[in-house]
């Protein structure tokens, strides 16, 4: 999907409206959606939550898996006119079409994807009022974007902690769909339960106190949600 991301200004964006995002079509070709640690427990009630490597930096990222192969998204599909139906919608999806970008002077600026279908001239929320002041809608959006950057920072620290204690390991997922050849998903990483159990008591206590342990358990249990994705795939295939 083409994007054109520009910093918001009253002069340029005084007249536009933002339609509410009912099915997150912007992500219809994204199999993996980045998460922050603060939303892992909620996301784990619906999706497998796991770790992958960023293909251009090699760094680990925390993600929710919404499809069973590359470019497949079983939730944000435009095949159905239906509304998004899941227990939880990741923050990245909800923040759209807004972004926070850091300028050369290290200042954060709220930006918008001007090509987003949510941007229009008559339906939804306005960004600036007649006096060129930010509307409450925009103020809320800006606030949650700033909070999101902080949450991403904490998420990086969490991943660093897992790497420091050598807790991540590569895992291959094999999924059986009907009688077809099994589907294999490569390149995903999980917390190694054996290594977790063998952790030094002191380290274990630290993980418990700083909340990392809860996230780890949510991630581990969420792997069962692969079954949910499989069912969803079969259901959409049978339609």
């Amino acid at each position: 999907m083409n994007k054109q991301i520009s910093p918001l200004s009253p002069a340029k964006h005084r007249d536009i409206y933002i339609r509410s995002n009912d099915n997150f079509l912007q992500a219809s070709e994204d199999q993996l959606i980045p998460l922050v640690v603060q939303e892992v427990v909620d996301a784990a009630t619906e999706f497998p939550v796991l770790f992958v490597k960023n293909s251009s930096t090699g760094e680990f990222t925390l993600v929710a898996m919404l499809g069973l192969k590359a470019q497949q998204n079983l939730y944000c599909s435009d095949e159905s006119e239906q509304q998004y139906d899941a227990n939880y919608a990741p923050l990245v999806l909800r923040n759209y079409p807004f972004y926070l970008q850091q300028s050369a002077e290290q200042q954060f600026a709220v930006c918008i994807d001007e090509l987003s279908p949510l941007v229009n001239h008559d339906e939804g929320q306005k960004l600036f009022n007649d006096n060129d002041e930010q509307t409450d809608f925009l103020k809320n959006k800006a606030e949650s974007l700033i909070k999101f950057v902080e949450q991403q920072h904490i998420t990086k620290g969490f991943i660093q902690l897992l790497l420091e204690h050598d807790l991540l390991h590569p895992q291959k997922l094999t999924i059986r769909l009907n009688d077809n050849d099994p589907l294999t998903i490569d390149g995903i990483y999980m917390v190694d339960q054996q290594r977790l159990e063998n952790l030094d008591d002191k380290v274990y206590a630290t993980l418990r106190k700083n909340g990392a342990l809860q996230i780890i358990h949510a991630h581990l249990m969420s792997m069962k949600q692969v079954n949910r994705l499989t069912r969803r795939l079969l259901k959409s295939a049978n339609k």
Partner: peptide
Amino acid sequence: DRIQRFGLQRI
């Protein structure tokens, strides 16, 4: 250049 910035992962 990218390894200079991001390093490589051990696993």
